[in-house]
């Protein structure tokens, strides 16, 4: 593996080499790795979805014929969409501020961001579980401040999942967006100001479009990650906003029904890749970060 990646890294710039398409060469290590240790094992497991308990499409019929499972599917995409939207809405202003605020302050915020990521995921999730309870600090503080009379239900529901997941996903939005905004040439915006553009216009017409590749990359990462997430929703969500990954985990680990588990995983894979294809069709590659 080391050998392969080294030679690929040292390879000359893209040039047509026999049967390899131009410029595909450097992707070889990744392709080999994923084919061997992802495609081969996963496909052989997914085959069980049409073989167990008996050959046929029985598992898929059961999965897609049940309103409960459809709800779980829908819910998975809704929660992931919500988490992505909230993360972007919060992440953009923070990345923007980080890119332009005085260096010393930016370093402190960065340090806190990294600290939050470094703290164990499970520990953070349990911390939120206790913080957000009806008897937890957040509710107690709000009641003491006189903002509410009755404790709010902040956990074991959609609110809890969103808070917990946004907390985990924020760095995945902020870091790429920060990189993109840092690279924007300030003189473009100065030019806009000279031409009489207001701040709102400059934001809408210049800054947001220029930051779009970063938003797309971060948003895609968060959305896709959320789809397959399981620990945080299981601990902070209620059972009625169960996500697909948790259902699959139950099929695989608790009920040991691999036919149904792989069928559900396959449906999730196909649905997500279809969504990705639709996004490419609608927005073209530029929206995905290409130039």
């Amino acid at each position: 593996m080391t050998q392969a990646s080294n030679t690929a890294m040292l390879a000359p710039p893209p040039r047509r080499r026999g049967w390899l398409p131009a410029g595909l060469g450097p992707a070889t290590p990744a392709l080999v790795l994923l084919t061997l240790f992802f495609v081969v094992p996963v496909v052989s497991l997914l085959l069980r979805s049409v073989l167990e308990p008996s050959p046929g499409l029985g598992n898929y019929a059961e999965l897609l014929g049940s309103s409960t499972y459809l709800r779980v599917f829908l819910n998975t995409f809704l929660v992931s969409g919500l988490v992505t939207t909230v993360s972007l809405l919060i992440g953009f202003p923070v990345a923007w501020t980080l890119a332009i605020m005085p260096g010393r302050w930016a370093r402190i915020v960065f340090a806190i961001l990294l600290l939050s990521m470094w703290t164990n995921l499970l520990a953070r999730t349990y911390a939120w579980m206790v913080l957000l309870q009806r008897t937890g600090i957040v509710n107690k503080t709000l009641i003491n401040l006189g903002l509410i009379d009755q404790p709010l239900t902040l956990v074991n529901n959609l609110v809890g999942v969103t808070i917990g997941m946004v907390y985990i996903m924020l760095p995945f939005v902020i870091l790429p967006l920060y990189g993109v905004i840092r690279r924007i040439d300030p003189s473009i915006l100065q030019a806009a100001a000279l031409c009489g553009a207001t701040k709102g216009q400059a934001l809408r017409r210049i800054l947001l479009p220029l930051a779009a590749p970063g938003m797309a990359a971060g948003g895609l990462m968060v959305f896709v990650m959320s789809l397959g997430y399981f620990v945080t929703p299981a601990l902070l969500g209620g059972t009625n906003n169960m996500m697909l990954a948790e259902l699959i985990a139950q099929f695989v680990q608790s009920l040991v029904n691999w036919g149904m588990g792989s069928a559900a995983a396959f449906v999730l894979l196909v649905a997500t890749l279809a969504l990705y294809a639709v996004q490419l069709r609608l927005f073209g590659t530029s929206q995905m970060g290409g130039r």
Partner: peptide
């Protein structure tokens, strides 16, 4: 029971 249990919870 398990299949029905998790389906009921998810409703």
């Amino acid at each position: 029971i398990g299949t029905r249990w998790y389906a009921w919870q998810a409703q």
